[in-house]
Amino acid sequence: MEQEEFNVNLGVKEIQEIIPHRYPFLLIDKVTYMEPGKKVIAYKNVTMNEYFFQGHFPAEPVMPGVLIIEALAQAGAVAILSQDSFKGKIAFFGGINKAKFRKKVVPGDVLKLEVEIVKIKGPAGIGKATAYVEDKKAAEAEIMFMIG
């Protein structure tokens, strides 16, 4: 298949048809590329209006690293739960390995979230996840999931 076949334009409404997350915990705004069950590219527009900036940190707002990992997991869940065999289910964290944070994510940044599913065995799998800001790595991790 040609790569262009996987270019998509999913907004928040379409994303909410795939994953169960809602405000204030839906952390992806759009999906531009998706191979169901294999790979996804999604985006999060980080604004000063995010609830977590009230306390993290008032004098220097920084997106918490765990929420960057959560945004990556949500992007990966869109790819997994778009696969016919998993539609309508929920993806749960099974583990997080090799997480590294390389750049602060601040209001005004656009997070590019790339997740490649590297292994699926039954209802469990592993994704290689990387978040970028302006083509610089902000965070990366290996995320394990279970479909429930």
Rank of each mutant, 00 (worst) to 15 (best):
G11W: 01
I120F: 10
E35I: 15
F92R: 08
L72C: 03
A73T: 07
I90T: 14
V8R: 10
S82A: 09
A129K: 04
P64I: 06
K30M: 04
I68Q: 06
F6H: 11
D109T: 05
L72Y: 00
L10Q: 03
F101H: 01
I28C: 10
A129I: 04
Q16C: 05
T130E: 08
E60G: 07
R102E: 11
D29A: 09
K137G: 01
V105W: 01
F6K: 08
S82V: 07
P20G: 08
L10A: 02
S85M: 14
A141M: 05
K104G: 00
V110R: 05
V118C: 08
G125Y: 03
K87A: 10
E116L: 13
L81G: 15
E14N: 12
G127I: 04
L67R: 01
V106C: 00
G94R: 06
I126G: 12
A91N: 01
V66N: 06
P107R: 03
G88P: 07
P107I: 02
E35H: 09
G108I: 03
G122W: 07
Y23V: 15
M34D: 10
H21Y: 10
L81Y: 04
F6A: 09
V115T: 14
E140K: 00
L67Q: 07
P123V: 09
G76K: 08
K104Y: 00
D84Q: 10
D29Y: 02
F6Y: 15
K98N: 14
L67N: 06
Q3W: 14
A131C: 15
I80Q: 11
V46I: 13
P61Y: 14
I18Y: 02
Q74A: 06
V133Q: 05
K121M: 05
K136G: 08
V8N: 08
K104A: 02
